[in-house]
Simulated assay, not measured.
Amino acid sequence: MTIVINLDVIMAKRKIRLKTLAQAMNMTEANLSILKNGKAKAVRFSTLDKLCEQLDCQPADILEFQKNDDN
């Protein structure tokens, strides 16, 4: 089971750059980049809340569950 972060997809659809989003969220570009690139181990609800507010989306637009076919 894997959680996939689709932040880059949503950002592309909204035509917003990492720097612009980071500034709007009062967050460093480095921390937002870690999340965008799927390297984050956890996401705070407050961060997810800000992302959804800035990108006008739902949490499910950003986070996606994918089952592994390893049986």
Results as ranks from 00 to 15, higher is better:
Thr2Ser: 10
Thr2Cys: 09
Thr2Arg: 14
Thr2Leu: 12
Ile3Ser: 10
Ile5Gln: 01
Asn6Ala: 10
Leu7Pro: 06
Leu7His: 03
Leu7Asp: 02
Asp8Ile: 03
Asp8Pro: 02
Ile10Leu: 12
Met11Asp: 08
Met11Ala: 06
Arg14Gln: 09
Arg14Trp: 06
Lys15His: 14
Lys15Leu: 08
Leu18Thr: 05
Leu18Tyr: 01
Leu18Asn: 13
Lys19Ile: 14
Ala22Glu: 07
Gln23Phe: 04
Ala24Arg: 15
Thr28Gly: 08
Thr28Cys: 06
Thr28Asn: 10
Glu29Tyr: 03
Ala30Thr: 13
Ala30Lys: 14
Asn31His: 12
Leu32Trp: 04
Leu32Gly: 02
Leu35Arg: 06
Leu35Ala: 04
Leu35Cys: 03
Gly38Ala: 01
Lys39Ala: 06
Ala40Thr: 05
Ala40Asn: 03
Ala42Tyr: 01
Val43Leu: 15
Arg44Asp: 08
Phe45Pro: 02
Phe45Gln: 12
Ser46Leu: 06
Thr47Ile: 13
Thr47Cys: 05
Thr47Asp: 03
Leu48His: 08
Asp49Thr: 09
Lys50Leu: 15
Lys50Gly: 04
Lys50His: 10
Lys50Phe: 02
Cys52Ile: 11
Cys52Gly: 04
Glu53Tyr: 07
Leu55Arg: 07
Leu55Asp: 02
Gln58Gly: 05
Gln58Pro: 02
Pro59Lys: 03
Ile62Asn: 00
Leu63Pro: 05
Leu63Asp: 01
Glu64Thr: 15
Gln66Asp: 07
Asn68Ala: 14
Asn68Cys: 10
Asn68Lys: 14
Asn68Pro: 01
Asp69Ser: 15
Asp69Cys: 07
Asp70Tyr: 09
Asp70Arg: 15
Asp70Met: 07
Asn71Ile: 14
